[in-house]
């Protein structure tokens, strides 16, 4: 059974159909990179998969459990209550602009949800927090506040915050787009190390070399559909569609 399966997803904002008909599967341990021009629906796809957006049609399943239920008119609605909580526990999301909680210290950012949504003891949560911050190279910063950190450090805190809840799949929504090149590399390094540990990840990115290096599967999106997908070698080395060729050429 796939960790995540998206079936015939459709999503519009008013008259604008942002996602036309997308199906995809994410298997345990896979790293999927989603590339494509701005406005192609990449971020919206992630926002639907993480239930930040409603969907117009289709289905999203985590480990075979549907995150949406169709009503009698066939319109999909988010599951509620305990089911929703369970589905949400399967994934984490790293935002483009971090969305750390500015009034919490680094440690509190990482551990607060553990304590208050997963009822872990403070000691247990802090152990997890320390381990993750060390892994992110931020063990010195546990008492700092987000404003005292560089963008790259903030993004690494937000990765630690997402990992703390032990998600089965981690989504990244352009995790380096708000960072300068130097800071970008330190964040990409962290994501690469997670890939080595076979963390399941779905990464929307504009970093083509990174996508090529880290992903086992690359999806090229254009105008709300998957225009091409395959291994990095296939998509980057030997793209089939002209649209993919033109897009990738623009990055070289």
């Amino acid at each position: 059974m796939s960790l995540l399966e998206i079936r015939q997803l459709k999503k519009s904002f008013g008259d604008l159909q942002v996602i036309k008909n997308i199906s995809l599967k994410v298997e345990q341990g896979e790293v999927i990179a989603i590339i494509g021009p701005s406005g192609s629906g990449k971020s919206t796809l992630l926002r639907c998969a993480t239930m930040l957006e409603s969907i117009d049609a289709g289905d999203i399943l985590y480990l075979g459990e549907s995150a949406f239920k169709a009503d009698k008119d066939g319109m999909p609605h988010k599951v509620t209550g305990a089911e929703l909580k369970k589905i949400r526990s399967y994934f984490g999301l790293v935002f483009q602009d971090f969305n750390l909680f500015p009034h919490f210290s680094v440690m509190k950012n990482v551990t607060d949800a553990l304590i208050h949504t997963q009822n872990k003891s403070k000691e247990e949560a802090y152990d997890i927090g320390r381990r993750l911050l060390t892994k992110m190279g931020l063990s010195e910063k546990e008492n700092a506040y987000p404003f005292q950190l560089s963008g790259g450090q903030q993004q690494r805190v937000s990765i630690a915050r997402a990992l703390a809840l032990n998600p089965k799949v981690l989504f990244f929504d352009e995790p380096t787009s708000a960072l300068d090149p130097e800071l970008t590399s330190e964040v990409l390094k962290v994501i690469k190390s997670l890939a080595k540990e076979h963390m399941t990840m779905v990464i929307v990115t504009h970093e083509m070399n990174f996508a090529k290096e880290v992903a086992n599967h690359v999806i090229f999106m254009d105008e709300g559909v998957i225009a091409e997908e395959g291994t990095p070698e296939e998509v980057f080395g030997n793209p089939k569609s002209d649209r993919t060729k033109a897009f990738i050429k623009g990055y070289q």
Binding site: L52, L93, F95, D97, N99, D112, A113, H116, A162
Partner: peptide, 20 residues
């Protein structure tokens, strides 16, 4: 983004309002 981050982390609406 503060609401969305809280939602993803599993905070309830009440927790989000009073903690975040």
């Amino acid at each position: 983004g503060q609401y969305e981050a809280a939602k993803i982390l599993g905070y309830s609406k009440v927790q989000t309002f009073f903690r975040i």
